[in-house]
Write a protein that binds this DNA or RNA. Structure first.
Lengths: 215, 215, 215, 215
DNA sequence: CATGAATGAGCTTTCATTCAT
DNA sequence: TATGAATGAAAGCTCATTCAT
């Protein structure tokens, strides 16, 4: 917006619309966002929005795809080679949680998508593969840990991954209602670190081979 | 709707509006819900909605209050006396998770409230006390477990509670996006039980006094 | 409103509604006034308003009648006996102008009635006689002045009366737009007195028998 | 309305809306006028009204400005050069009164604005200068008349102007209530001429230098 | 590629009024 | 006599979208 405007700049216009839409959809949801506001923020007019994305919903799907792509790229570039299994888990968790904490708008979009029962996600093509690399990575770590006798065997990597992500997701996504009820703001550095320590502890306690005897 | 309609029934009208609003707000969010649809579902006309709740937002706040009250009532009535500490944790977790899984609309409302950064929750009065009874209960269990040498000492009950709730919350709230990416539907009995088992295991592993040496 | 409320007080209720209606109609006009606001100000409910006055328009007509009656009563009680013709004119004018200045809301009502082309005034019965006593009074003064050689003869008392009233009416009724354009506020004592002096001068100059030669 | 419609005609659309609004606001006042009716009369839809004028009130202010501008233009083009002072007064008065009589809707708008205590007039910018040219003109006439010994000296031109305008304003603006009470219709040619003669006589009688001795 | 003008449907809200007790 | 509950119509305004240039 504040950047220098070129007269005919198709790619730039498209990109600015997408960025503005991302901002508005994450702030207000699909129903709450205004086409008019998106155009204004993008520094163009409503017509262009339809020119490039066909409809409000089309634009919403485009934003969804872009954000998932961005998220996947970030997770895919994680290098855990040469680490002890427990350290690898630690680093993986911290990486994901930090990313979530630093991109809370992203969570709004995901929540919105769940409100719509995933309808728009289905509409998009390239997806499923988005998540698998990280789960594969995790599977490898768990297997290595088990074979080395450090982790308990037989853990489902997908459930474990979902649990790990959920720990970071919940405290960020629900930071406002949580603060209202607990008086504790989990977006604050101190509180976030403190509960993250708890979460790492919990994950690693669970992975210990002897802990299994308890249940 | 299908219930017998009495001609003059202020309490009934009010209640039906509230129920219809709860349904619509949880389905579509504050912005997405239509006043007109709420009135129709409630079997009355739009005017009554303003008669009883002043505005759409006023109605939203009323729904929010009602749902939180309902949630608190349910959690408050939990009886864990006479149970071993670890069994008490198990029962508490199962109770909360079951409740969450059976009331997914409730989570939509909470997510919506987080989208609004908790603005409407602030507007309501009676709150904070809603959560404390359960946390007090949990604190007592943790202390008893620690004094009996079964749990590690020094655990923050609030962080532990948030973690516990979050485990159940995340898989239910995000069931649609999770299914899109993992192919696994956590609303299904089998998957829900399986990951719940993982979560209980994890909580109890963490609580074991010797697990602490690991980190 | 602030007076002591009796439980069953038909006359009081009716009177309070009428007073509240007068206030609201003069402030906002017929279209702008709100039935709901009238009831609130009157300290009763909307239903009573319909009980006593049938409709909003019925109430408006009642207010109109009441205010005209009040105005007529005031003018009718004027005693000009024993005064020199020119002094009688002076006193008559001052009396009317002061009354207008002190009851600007009344003018709003009259303007409103003119906006409606006098439709509601027609609906009322006892009227025409309202004005005649003052005009009769004025006619008598003019005739006496003429027969005594102080006033020019042949003046139409009705036109003269209309002119006289209009002088006071215009500066009060249009005080806001006049101030916006002239910067002079004719509701202020000083300005009102100054222009009133001009008006009296003008009326009396015109009445002088020799002034007629000029035209 | 009945004119030929061009498909894309921004200026025309804007103008037609303004004209329709002027008609409706003068007929029914700000509160009484209907946005829907304005759009229909303008031969467009309600949306365009907001497109060009932001809100109903915005449109009202635009109408106000347009009508004042029109009024000012008309008065500004008056040529009184080469006339005897008394004839100049006569011509000025006749010009203003005729204009008022021929544009009674304009008076409705002014009355409406006074009902609103001039709130919307304030909102507008260019104003004060609207009236001054005519007052300057009048001041010059009065001074010339005084220096030539035809008029009494020391007359305040602003008060004199207000009085002059008021004479024409009152009988037109209040023609309906006046007819209800006096039975005389001042919009009719005969009656209007008759009272106008009285008014001119009165103004000139007052201006005569010797009339001043009377008071 | 870009944009101002135009549209109709639908939104939340308010209105005057009537019903039932 | 008094009042809370109920209503339908319509108000002002906003929405996503399309047309014409």
């Amino acid at each position: 917006m504040s950047e220098l405007r070129v007269k005919r700049d198709p790619e730039g216009t498209r990109r600015r619309i997408l960025e503005a839409a991302a901002e508005q959809f994450t702030k207000f949801g699909l129903a709450g966002a205004r086409v008019d506001a998106i155009a204004t923020v993008a520094g163009t007019n409503e017509r262009m929005l339809y020119y490039y994305f066909t409809s409000k919903e089309g634009l919403y799907v485009a934003v969804l795809e872009a954000m998932y792509a961005q998220f996947a790229e970030r997770e895919g570039s994680l290098d855990l080679s040469g680490l002890q299994p427990s350290d690898a888990i630690r680093k993986l968790a911290q990486s994901i949680w930090t990313h979530l904490r630093d991109n809370p708008q992203w969570l709004n979009l995901v929540n919105n998508e769940n409100l719509h029962e995933g309808r728009y996600l289905e509409r998009s093509s390239r997806l499923r593969e988005t998540i698998s690399p990280v789960v594969d990575l995790l599977r490898a770590i768990l297997e290595r840990g088990a074979s080395e006798g450090q982790f308990r065997p037989g853990i489902d990597p997908l459930d474990f991954y979902v649990t790990l992500v959920g720990m970071g997701y919940y405290v960020v996504s629900n930071r406002f209602t949580l603060e209202a009820f607990t008086g504790r703001n989990y977006a604050e550095q101190r509180n976030h670190e403190s509960i993250s320590r708890l979460h790492v502890d919990m994950l690693l306690s669970y992975l210990r081979p002897d802990s299994r005897t308890m249940d």
